[in-house]
Design a protein around this nucleic acid. Structure first.
Lengths: 202, 202, 202, 202
DNA sequence: TATGAATGAGAGTTCATTCAT
DNA sequence: AATGAATGAACTCTCATTCAT
């Protein structure tokens, strides 16, 4: 009856449910996924889900929120230790390269569907933008660092450059969303990287 | 009785219906739009729509098909007369700049939702890819032209470059999908343009 | 403008429409046949049909009525000239034999569906019964004739026997409705015939 | 949680639903009965029905299947103990006699409508024929038994005779479907019986 | 008269959510 | 807290009938 235990248990259970739901949403999309799909996949009852989440929509939003936060958090940690801005950018591209096309596609499907969903709900648009801003600032800080150390050209517009950085990355993901092979994809990331470096360095 | 009149009338009516449906799909999304929404918006009866289109899905696919074709057709025409490859690329960026953010967002919302939809249906994926290939080849031809005239660097990988071209464009549209202002958007296109030229020219 | 011509034309047109409708009803059943089916088959317009018949149902009833009358009429004619009751019965069986299984099945499908339809509408039930009575009386008259001439046994209950006559005939049609081959069918008619004769003769 | 309870409950519920649906189908016919009719009659929700049956059609087929099986099963049991083939046939006629005209009519309405329905769907035709074959074989076995014991004439074509047996029975039901009174009906069964015995015995 | 585009009530079916157990 | 049978509003699609031309 200790509330602490109950609380921990609840958090864990919520996480398990969200994981199962994510699997389904990724497979079929949010709208096309039924509560029955989720329930079947998780092997629990509908009531159980509704005792943790008020609605299918709430699960979705919660899930997207978790994803966004996870991505930002796991970014900031690693970078503290790298002294070179160029290395930090390179590290980002390595991370892009490490994701398989299959993973990328699933990730994008979820990401895009939520974006469309958010575009129609002002409060979600707001939250989404906060997340997008953080991602922009994250790269901008690296760019600014590079300018200070002289690695990047001094007249670089770091705000614009970080926008370009993400544009290229997102656009590439979009390009390979429906077709293309792993090897081509990896090669295009290389090109993307070299183009970006050509742009930010002298 | 005259087939000409009837035929023309039918084509016109189909177009009107598609226009009305597009309006609704853009507003709420394909899945969230009900036939009642469309019917209300158009001020006609349900039966009328179903005598022109077999299903909601058919309308959607027809619509997407029309959009794709329209885009490709209106591209090829204008370019015949331009002698310089650089001018052709510049012309493309001017076209990007001429589209307002509001238009862009509507366009993207439709575009992305259909892409997600297509991703789950093999035959649509197929058709989508054919369209994407044409867009790629269109830019690649320009790049190859520029290499021949010496405008672009001779070691440019035109296939990769055209992929990058579209990646950047699509990514930028994605970036500005949920936030950003007109002026910033235009400026980012400028940056995008200069980055691309930096990459394709010597 | 002569009313006679118009009248004749109308009758002819009605007959053509009913013929086309019958074809469709036989193929798919009354309920499953749409006005579009009929219109397509006939190559005329919906309005045309509605200027001759008030409703799909009216066509159906009219059609069934015509069929019943036709059958009774074409029976009575031929029999006047036959002196022997046994020959008359034999003639009936020959007529049964002359109908192919395919024809029989189509005929039965229409017949049965209308029967079910009529069973739910008192006025149609009434009309159906009048027709059925005529068919019964027709055979009963033959039976009575046979008793008078001594061809059939004198203690024969002609009313009951005619009921049996039709029961056997209808039941056989039912038996072969969904399966069975032409040759078997013909043989079963033979058996049926011999059984009936065994019953009505001494 | 106990599967036994749940399973039993579900079976019972399915039976209740089928019973209610049968009532409606018998009243108005399969096609004319709407899901709303059934729902109203049963006092449950539409969703409830769809959690037990996938479609209106599935209910219908299930129902017809149950009816067929019930009829065959309840036949075979009782006959094991009867030594005389003639008694077995006589027993059948007693069973026919024991069914009231009202029951018979309802039964026939369902039976015939399903037959028409099945006639247009090859797989159902198939299943229907299997059932019909079993009914034929059931009588044929009795006939063969009677030939062996010498009760029936030795040159009897038992296959043909069983076909006739059912033809007469089905045809009689058809005869009395729309008109006729209980007493007449019973009497005609007597005639039918005597005619059949006249035919199968020497 | 004939046409066939248009109507709209009503069909079968789905599924997020509730609540008695 | 967990279950899953039940709900019923909302969905897509059909089709007999009408009526302006």
């Amino acid at each position: 009856m200790s509330p602490k235990v109950t609380q921990a248990y609840k958090e864990e259970k919520k996480a398990v449910i969200l994981e199962g739901a994510l699997h389904c949403f990724t497979e079929k999309g949010f709208q096309a996924t039924t509560m029955d799909d989720i329930v079947r996949h998780l092997g629990i009852s509908k009531g159980a889900i509704y005792s943790y989440f008020a609605s299918k929509e709430e699960m979705y939003i919660q899930m997207a929120d978790d994803k966004m936060n996870a991505m930002l958090e796991n970014s900031t940690e690693t970078f503290k230790s790298m002294p070179s801005a160029a290395d930090q950018i390179r590290y980002m591209y390595n991370r892009f390269r490490s994701q398989s096309l299959t993973e990328l596609r699933k990730w994008m499907a979820f990401h895009l569907e939520f974006m469309l969903y958010a575009a129609r709900q002002p409060q979600l648009t707001q939250r989404w933008n906060e997340y997008a801003d953080k991602a922009l600032v994250f790269i901008k800080d690296i760019m600014d660092g590079g300018k200070l150390t002289g690695e990047f050209r001094s007249d670089l517009d770091s705000a614009a450059a970080s926008r370009l950085f993400w544009s290229i990355r997102d656009g590439l993901a979009l390009q390979y969303m429906l077709s293309g092979e792993e090897a081509d994809y990896k090669r295009t990331i290389d090109d993307m990287e070299s183009m970006v470096f050509r742009y930010i360095m002298g």
